[in-house]
């Protein structure tokens, strides 16, 4: 082969077309492999969402209108639902943080074996049906349940506490379901923090408490934020547990959507609520991204 040929236009590069073909074949293979998933998401997620959102713009008489959205804005009942949904979600998130952060911190201090065994205890509820767990809580918390009867036999209380079928019950049940969603990302982040960093801080003169707040906590923040976002967004649209544990006294958004369909069979109004919930969740994710920088969390 002469020098002119190898220095010429790209076409004359040795085997160039074969290499290009191989490259294209590879990317087509990847596309082919992910196609089923892409199609499934399109058909099962995006099409229904588009269809439901379009429903929300029709009133009961089948005319195009903003009636459904206007009602959400005007009705005190709907406004109340939104407020309660937010309040419960914030409370659940807060309690999860207060329980989950010390738990994760403690787990990272334990030997690997012990930590992984304890992690299984955190995860087992995660693998059991929500319904089973919720009914289990009802058994524990009801008027003559184990908690009330033992507290009474110990003489700590005279009358049974109202623990189920109300706000308290909803929050207890939800915290239990949501805790793994906080613990998993947080624990993963904490595990990846180099122990030398805390040592370095202490070695350079920080007290252990100072080293925790100045070094460990800032480094655990991405995991904490990821957990908070997950728990909060999931809480906003949570249905099963608040419906069962709330005993009809607590109405969160998902329950309102359900009753709008089953009782009033008003698909337009229900769709409008669903769209608002979806938008709220997106706004929350965007806000948290702006405040906490979630991109830093997923791209290292």
């Amino acid at each position: 082969m002469s020098i002119h040929e190898s220095n010429g236009s790209p076409q004359s590069l040795k085997n160039a077309s074969k290499i290009k073909f191989e490259e294209r074949r590879e990317s087509l293979t990847f596309l082919g492999l992910s196609l089923p998933a892409i199609l499934a998401i399109l058909i099962v997620v995006f099409l229904p969402i588009i269809w439901l959102s379009s429903l929300s713009f029709y009133n009961a008489a089948g005319e195009l209108s903003m009636e459904n959205y206007a009602r959400i804005y005007e009705s005190a009942l709907y406004r109340r639902t939104f407020v309660v949904t937010f309040q419960i979600s914030i409370a659940v998130t807060l309690i999860c943080v207060l329980l989950g952060y010390p738990l994760c911190y403690w787990l990272t201090k334990l030997p690997d074996r012990t930590a992984s065994i304890l992690m299984i205890f955190v995860l087992v509820p995660f693998w059991t049906s929500i319904l089973v767990r919720t009914y289990a809580w009802l058994v524990l918390l009801q008027r003559n349940g184990i908690i009330n009867s033992s507290l009474m036999s110990l003489g700590i209380i005279d009358e049974p506490l109202q623990l189920a079928h109300n706000l308290t019950g909803s929050i207890i049940g939800m915290v239990h379901v949501m805790l793994p969603f906080l613990v998993l990302p947080l624990y993963a982040t904490m595990r990846s923090i180099d122990t030398d960093l805390v040592r370095a801080a202490v070695g350079l003169g920080s007290s252990p408490r100072e080293a925790f707040w100045r070094v460990f906590f800032p480094m655990s923040r991405p995991g904490l934020f990821a957990g908070i976002v997950l728990v909060f967004i999931l809480s906003l649209g949570f249905y099963v547990t608040p419906a069962l544990m709330g005993g009809g006294r607590v109405q969160m958004l998902a329950q309102r959507i359900e009753s709008t369909i089953t009782i009033y069979s008003n698909w337009g109004a229900a769709s409008a609520l669903g769209v608002v919930l979806l938008l709220l969740a997106l706004v929350m994710i965007w806000l948290m991204h702006r405040v906490f920088g979630l991109d830093k969390l997923f791209m290292r």
Binding site: D194, D196, L197, R199, A200, A201, V202, G203, L204, G205, S206, S207, P208, E210, A211, V215, P218, M219
Partner: peptide
């Protein structure tokens, strides 16, 4: 004496620089 009261300068193998 606890480590933070020993007044030492320390350099670690992993550098242990605070990444944030």
């Amino acid at each position: 004496t606890p480590p933070h009261k020993r007044g030492l300068g320390m350099v670690f193998q992993s550098y242990a620089l605070f990444p944030f």
